[in-house]
Computed example of a mutant assay.
Amino acid sequence: MSTDRRTLLADTAITVLADTGIRGLTHRAVDRAADLPAGTTSAYYRTRQALLTALVRRLVALDQAELERLGELLPVPRSSAELAAGIGELIRVRLTGEGRRRTLARYACAVESVHDPALREILLPRENRARRSVCDFLAAQGVADAEERTVWLLLCVDGLVFDRLVNGGGVREAEIAGLVAAALR
């Protein structure tokens, strides 16, 4: 079975999930969205669970690649303003275009993972260059519990992204600066 076809189906499943919600994620919906003959998705992913697992694995791979790229583009910040700017870029990516779709799909999968420990395991936060940059910056600023503060800060950012997806609106620089300042306290 072709890896490229599997990737296409997983990518299309992410789009279907983001556009229609968890109930709209069906083999047929993925076939239609990918413009493939009926039955193609079920030939590669026999069950809905297999399709959802493939979707989540692909989502995590795309997110990790994005965070690695951001970490390369935005090395360890030298100031809280640089950290806030980097976080602002992450938020912008998560709220626009394909990033928005992946974010919507990620939250749908997170809710689904409450009842599915295997999905929850795949979705666990992972180490990446962007996360390491935040932690290194906090440690360089003398924050004693830099690892814990990094997790706290990124959870706050995640909550801010979730709020803006659900309620609309943009994120103000002052909001991000406030989160960074709180992490440094």
Rank of each mutant, 00 (worst) to 15 (best):
H27Q: 09
R23C: 04
E112G: 04
L70V: 01
L119Y: 00
A43G: 15
T15Q: 14
E98R: 15
T53E: 00
L52W: 00
S80R: 15
L119W: 02
V76P: 03
S79W: 02
I87W: 00
A38E: 11
T53N: 00
V16Y: 04
P77Q: 03
L104S: 11
A33V: 05
P77M: 04
L36W: 03
R101P: 06
Y107G: 08
L90Y: 09
I91K: 10
E82G: 05
A81H: 10
R102Y: 05
L67N: 05
A65S: 15
P37N: 09
G39P: 13
G99Q: 06
V56D: 02
R100Y: 09
H27A: 15
R102G: 11
T53A: 03
G97Q: 06
R32W: 01
T26W: 02
V93Q: 09
R69W: 01
A29M: 06
V60W: 02
R92V: 07
D31G: 14
Q64D: 13
R57N: 14
G86T: 03
R120F: 08
L62V: 15
D116I: 01
L83D: 05
T53P: 01
C109M: 15
T40M: 10
G88Y: 01
R57K: 14
V111D: 08
Y44S: 13
Q49H: 13
T41E: 07
A81R: 14
R46P: 10
R28E: 08
E66P: 04
A81K: 09
R94Y: 04
R23E: 04
